[in-house]
Amino acid sequence: PDDEWKERLREAEEKNNWKLFEELARKAGVSEEKIEEWKRRWS
């Protein structure tokens, strides 16, 4: 299951679909801290 969400995150990233990325990350149990960090790195 871990690989599956990583794959989906990669797809979201490729499409630059931040909303989807964020949603998937939350569902995968990624901390808000980590998500914010990704946001900063991404923008």
Rank of each mutant, 00 (worst) to 15 (best):
34 K>S: 06
23 E>N: 05
34 K>N: 06
32 E>S: 06
11 E>S: 07
32 E>F: 04
40 R>C: 14
16 N>R: 13
24 L>F: 12
4 E>A: 10
25 A>Q: 01
23 E>F: 12
7 E>F: 05
7 E>Q: 13
8 R>K: 12
19 K>G: 08
35 I>D: 00
23 E>A: 10
40 R>T: 09
2 D>F: 13
18 W>G: 01
9 L>H: 04
38 W>A: 06
43 S>W: 15
18 W>H: 01
12 A>K: 04
42 W>P: 01
13 E>F: 15
38 W>C: 14
26 R>T: 02
21 F>Q: 01
2 D>H: 09
40 R>N: 10
15 K>D: 09
39 K>S: 02
17 N>W: 13
40 R>S: 11
15 K>G: 11
28 A>D: 01
34 K>V: 14
37 E>P: 00
25 A>K: 00
31 S>L: 03
26 R>G: 01
35 I>M: 03
4 E>H: 11
39 K>A: 04
17 N>C: 15
23 E>D: 10
7 E>R: 11
16 N>H: 14
16 N>K: 13
19 K>L: 09
2 D>E: 10
23 E>Q: 08
9 L>I: 07
27 K>D: 06
35 I>G: 00
43 S>C: 14
9 L>N: 03
26 R>W: 01
38 W>V: 04
13 E>Q: 15
18 W>S: 00
2 D>K: 09
3 D>G: 09
15 K>S: 14
20 L>R: 08
20 L>A: 11
5 W>H: 04
24 L>S: 03
27 K>M: 14
41 R>S: 12
35 I>S: 00
8 R>L: 15
6 K>P: 07
32 E>Q: 08
8 R>P: 05
27 K>R: 13
7 E>I: 09
41 R>D: 06
23 E>T: 08
27 K>C: 15
33 E>L: 04
19 K>D: 12
1 P>N: 10
38 W>E: 03
31 S>N: 05
41 R>G: 07
12 A>H: 05
7 E>D: 11
1 P>C: 15
16 N>Y: 07
35 I>P: 00
41 R>I: 13
1 P>L: 15
26 R>Q: 03
34 K>G: 03
39 K>R: 14
37 E>N: 03
40 R>H: 08
29 G>D: 01
17 N>L: 13
19 K>F: 09
33 E>G: 05
12 A>P: 02
30 V>E: 01
29 G>Q: 02
42 W>S: 02
35 I>R: 00
4 E>S: 09
29 G>T: 00
14 E>K: 13
33 E>A: 12
17 N>V: 06
21 F>Y: 04
5 W>D: 04
30 V>A: 04
40 R>Q: 12
16 N>L: 09
5 W>T: 05
35 I>A: 00
37 E>I: 03
28 A>I: 07
43 S>V: 11
1 P>E: 12
39 K>F: 09
30 V>G: 00
32 E>D: 09
39 K>Y: 10
42 W>M: 05
15 K>A: 14
15 K>R: 10
31 S>K: 04
24 L>K: 03
26 R>P: 00
30 V>D: 00
11 E>G: 05
36 E>Y: 06
6 K>A: 14
37 E>K: 03
27 K>A: 15
1 P>G: 11
42 W>Q: 02
14 E>M: 14
19 K>W: 08
17 N>T: 05
23 E>S: 07
33 E>V: 07
4 E>R: 09
27 K>N: 09
27 K>S: 11
40 R>D: 06
12 A>D: 03
5 W>N: 04
29 G>E: 01
10 R>E: 06
8 R>I: 14
36 E>H: 05
32 E>W: 08
4 E>G: 10
38 W>N: 01
3 D>P: 10
4 E>K: 09
25 A>N: 00
25 A>G: 01
6 K>G: 11
28 A>S: 06
5 W>A: 03
31 S>Q: 04
30 V>W: 15
12 A>M: 08
9 L>E: 04
28 A>T: 02
10 R>S: 06
31 S>T: 07
19 K>E: 12
14 E>D: 08
25 A>H: 01
11 E>K: 06
6 K>T: 13
13 E>H: 15
7 E>V: 10
2 D>Y: 13
42 W>Y: 08
12 A>F: 11
33 E>K: 08
39 K>T: 02
1 P>Q: 12
2 D>P: 12
25 A>I: 05
29 G>Y: 01
18 W>D: 00
10 R>G: 05
4 E>V: 12
26 R>M: 03
11 E>N: 06
13 E>C: 15
24 L>G: 02
27 K>G: 07
22 E>M: 08
27 K>T: 06
39 K>E: 02
13 E>T: 13
19 K>P: 12
19 K>M: 09
42 W>G: 02
29 G>H: 02
9 L>P: 03
12 A>L: 10
41 R>K: 12
32 E>N: 07
19 K>Y: 09
39 K>I: 09
21 F>P: 00
13 E>I: 15
42 W>T: 01
10 R>W: 10
4 E>Y: 15
34 K>R: 11
34 K>F: 12
28 A>G: 05
36 E>R: 09
17 N>K: 06
17 N>E: 07
11 E>D: 12
26 R>E: 01
34 K>Y: 07
40 R>A: 12
21 F>H: 01
6 K>V: 13
6 K>M: 14
38 W>I: 08
15 K>I: 08
33 E>N: 06
17 N>A: 07
20 L>P: 02
11 E>I: 07
3 D>S: 11
32 E>I: 05
23 E>I: 09
7 E>S: 09
9 L>Y: 08
19 K>T: 12
21 F>T: 01
41 R>P: 01
20 L>K: 06
20 L>I: 08
10 R>I: 08
17 N>Y: 07
41 R>Q: 14
18 W>I: 03
13 E>L: 15
10 R>M: 10
11 E>V: 05
30 V>K: 01
11 E>W: 11
2 D>S: 12
13 E>W: 15
1 P>Y: 13
12 A>I: 07
39 K>W: 10
35 I>C: 01
3 D>M: 09
36 E>I: 06
6 K>E: 14
21 F>G: 00
20 L>F: 09
43 S>M: 15
32 E>K: 07
30 V>S: 01
35 I>L: 08
39 K>D: 00
20 L>N: 05
8 R>H: 09
36 E>L: 12
31 S>H: 03
9 L>F: 13
30 V>T: 02
18 W>Q: 01
23 E>Y: 13
31 S>G: 04
32 E>T: 05
21 F>A: 03
6 K>R: 13
4 E>P: 06
43 S>D: 10
6 K>N: 11
16 N>E: 06
16 N>T: 04
1 P>A: 11
33 E>W: 06
37 E>W: 08
24 L>M: 10
20 L>V: 09
39 K>N: 02
37 E>L: 03
9 L>Q: 03
10 R>K: 13
22 E>T: 04
15 K>P: 03
25 A>W: 06
38 W>K: 01
28 A>M: 13
21 F>E: 00
4 E>D: 12
24 L>I: 14
30 V>Y: 15
24 L>W: 15
15 K>H: 11
11 E>P: 03
3 D>V: 08
1 P>W: 14
8 R>E: 07
18 W>F: 04
41 R>A: 13
21 F>N: 00
23 E>G: 03
12 A>S: 05
34 K>W: 14
3 D>Y: 10
5 W>G: 02
5 W>M: 06
8 R>N: 06
2 D>Q: 09
12 A>R: 02
1 P>R: 10
18 W>T: 01
38 W>D: 01
42 W>I: 03
4 E>M: 11
32 E>M: 06
28 A>V: 05
14 E>G: 08
2 D>I: 11
33 E>I: 05
4 E>T: 10
24 L>D: 02
31 S>A: 07
17 N>H: 07
1 P>V: 13
24 L>Q: 04
2 D>C: 15
26 R>K: 05
24 L>C: 14
35 I>Q: 00
7 E>G: 07
37 E>A: 05
34 K>A: 11
36 E>Q: 12
34 K>C: 15
14 E>A: 13
42 W>E: 01
23 E>C: 15
1 P>M: 13
8 R>A: 14
40 R>W: 09
22 E>S: 05
33 E>H: 06
23 E>M: 10
28 A>P: 00
7 E>H: 09
19 K>I: 09
15 K>C: 15
25 A>T: 01
12 A>T: 03
2 D>G: 11
20 L>E: 13
10 R>N: 06
16 N>C: 15
33 E>F: 05
34 K>P: 00
28 A>L: 13
11 E>R: 07
41 R>E: 12
2 D>T: 12
18 W>Y: 03
43 S>Q: 14
20 L>Q: 08
19 K>C: 15
20 L>M: 10
36 E>G: 04
41 R>L: 15
3 D>I: 09
16 N>P: 02
9 L>A: 08
19 K>R: 12
18 W>K: 01
43 S>H: 14
19 K>V: 11
21 F>V: 06
32 E>V: 05
28 A>H: 07
40 R>K: 12
43 S>R: 14
25 A>R: 00
30 V>M: 15
2 D>A: 09
5 W>S: 04
37 E>V: 02
2 D>R: 09
